[in-house]
Nucleic acid binder design. Structure first.
Lengths: 187, 187
DNA sequence: GTCTATACGAAGATAGAC
DNA sequence: GTCTATCTTCGTATAGAC
């Protein structure tokens, strides 16, 4: 198949970024984890590791938007709840070991181009959440501000849950966000 | 002086952790940034890099608690505002390049012992905030929950601000937290 | 498109003089 | 307590056959 190997590599990179960070995502481990052939790295990613990581960040962003689109037309608290489910699931399925690949890039990448891509994903996340909330009647200003609050809080909650190795702290933050979503000003 | 070199090394490690992450904190750079003698690394830290990083995490935790103690007896919104100032200052003075060293460890350290130390600092942070809030009349349960929310949200807001290279997103999250602090249930 | 072998550089750790 | 030189390991990247 045309790009199956490439996709496996990107998949492995996402998982490693989420658990071990940027410099911790070793190409050797990507190969080992995915069973992809090592010799093909530079065939699929002529730019080497940075290009592979860039693809991983981009795919993470696309998946997030895709997931959020399933909540079009829902009430604000359902939209926010669905958004949080994305991260809660990541924590649970990994036994609190995996977090956000994009956050990992932001706090440790040394290449500006990768930080730019991370920023683009965060912006797309906030924009999508803003769009859904305002689509369900929340004022645009409140929707935009709350989207920023939700994205920041969720990212931080994921980190805390990883440090604590417990979902409890995440749920405390998540409940607070859903509560706030219920009282957002509407048009 | 007895431990001046050691302290400079820990200082440099904190700064590098905050900007480049765990694996990005190279001993070579610690030496270069602090002017400390390379040959002394293993004299002061027989355990090598991990021991130096552990000292950096611990010192970060102590500084945080020290800072928070200056707000004993203040109103909830002042306590939370002071807490947020700690992080806002870190962002501003570094031109949005530095974040939280403890978060950096959590998302990229491969050594369990370091994650444990990071968790201890997060716990101490939450405990101190809880203590101050309940000391100013907030119910213990609300104080504990809100402390978790504030720490998580602030951590996430710092990451977002770094990605955006702008303090704006941090302030949106900070304002929301201060607003919430005004309406916490009291005894 | 896949694979092996290898070059190259970097980073952490060590030895031992001063 | 400081310093230099060096060792070892490892990770990325390349070359070139298949």
């Amino acid at each position: 198949m045309a790009h199956n190997t490439r996709e496996k590599m990107v998949e492995g990179a996402i998982e490693l970024l989420a658990t071990k960070g940027f410099q911790g995502t070793l190409l050797t481990d990507v190969i080992e984890a995915t069973g992809a052939p090592r010799g093909s790295i530079y065939h699929h990613f002529p730019g080497g590791k940075d290009e592979m990581i860039a693809a991983a960040v981009d795919l993470t962003g696309r998946r997030y938007v895709e997931w959020m689109d399933t909540f079009v037309g829902a009430k604000p608290e359902m939209i926010v709840g669905g958004f949080l489910q994305f991260w809660r699931h990541t924590l649970i399925r990994s036994d609190m070991k995996a977090g956000c690949p994009v956050l990992a890039i932001t706090v440790s990448a040394d290449v500006d181009e990768l930080i730019d891509r991370a920023r683009a994903v965060f912006r797309a996340s906030r924009a999508k959440l803003t769009e859904l909330l305002s689509g369900s009647g929340v004022t645009v200003d409140a929707a935009a501000k709350f989207a920023t609050i939700a994205v920041a809080s969720a990212e931080g909650a994921v980190v805390l849950a990883r440090a604590e190795r417990s979902i409890e702290v995440f749920d405390i933050v998540a409940d607070n966000l859903v509560d706030q979503a219920r009282t957002l000003p509407t048009n």
